[in-house]
Amino acid sequence: MALLTTVAAHAPDTDVGLYRTVRLIRRFEERAVELVRSGDIIGGIHPYTGQEAIAAGVCAALRLDDMITSTHRGHGHVLAKGADPARVLAELAGRATGLNKGRGGSMHAADFALGILGANAIVGANGAITAGAAWAARQSGGDQVAVSFFGDGAVNQGVLLEAMNLASLWRLPVLFVCENNGYATTLTVSDAVAGTITGRGEAFGMPSATVDGMDPRTVLAAAREAVDRARAGGGPSLVECLTYRFDAHHTWEHKARVRYRDDAEVLSGRERDPVEIQGVRLAGGERARVDAEVESMMDTAVAFALDSPHPDPVGALDHLYATGMRARPGGGG
């Protein structure tokens, strides 16, 4: 049971709902970065800051029983699909109360009850999984749609291109969402991508569009069109969302100071902020009310995560096999 009121309960496709989601993701990421710095989150995170409009807009076009797969930069997608922020944060902090009982961490958050089939740490790996889940739902007589989120780095992965071919060939209800933030870790799109990203979708006969990924309304409109088409049997689509990553590829950069974007570019990239773009659409009092609600929710989430127990090392390999089979112990024994 969700401890905190989740996104899905708040009409996420309204202007207030979209703002609430982008604001929640923003504050979640900022608080998570603080917990990385304090050592409460080990391993660091890939902050989604700046890209919030994409998760908010796409997930607002989905039903509760629709499915998503996500990436190493996945907190935003998971929150926007309705996961409990407290349990997501507890997962990042490796606690037993986390979504995955502390077994997955930042890059593998999953909540199957909400159609969140897992964030995936291998770039481009989730597209084919998404296609299979969409096929299974259709075979069961359902009309669910499955969304595969990935970054611009994934468009050069063979398995993703194979997955696009399968999805289009079999007219599967899939939405491929490319979050083009300009960089695959440090490599620019112009140094990595021959042709275009939408050209890859078009090559497989998929409707493919490039949209402003900084505006939640724009993303919602594009996603809604593609989701409606998929649900009606019209097959998959590709939506390329142009965006900018405000923070590091990974919090590791905060210490390592890798130089691949100059200050002027980062400043310029942050000028169009999805939280502001959506925020100005709300009346002043409404915005302040949502901000206060999000702040309170994050305070509760942080307290919940830090107060939660660590998992018992005795069960380190619990769930290794779904059948409960136990592996031989390591160590000396």
């Binding site: 084919a128 889940a133 096929w135 299974a136 739902a137 069961s140 398995v159």
Partner: peptide, 10 residues
Amino acid sequence: SFATGAALGG
């Protein structure tokens, strides 16, 4: 991986 996804779907 399509099979993995289908397995996740039952």
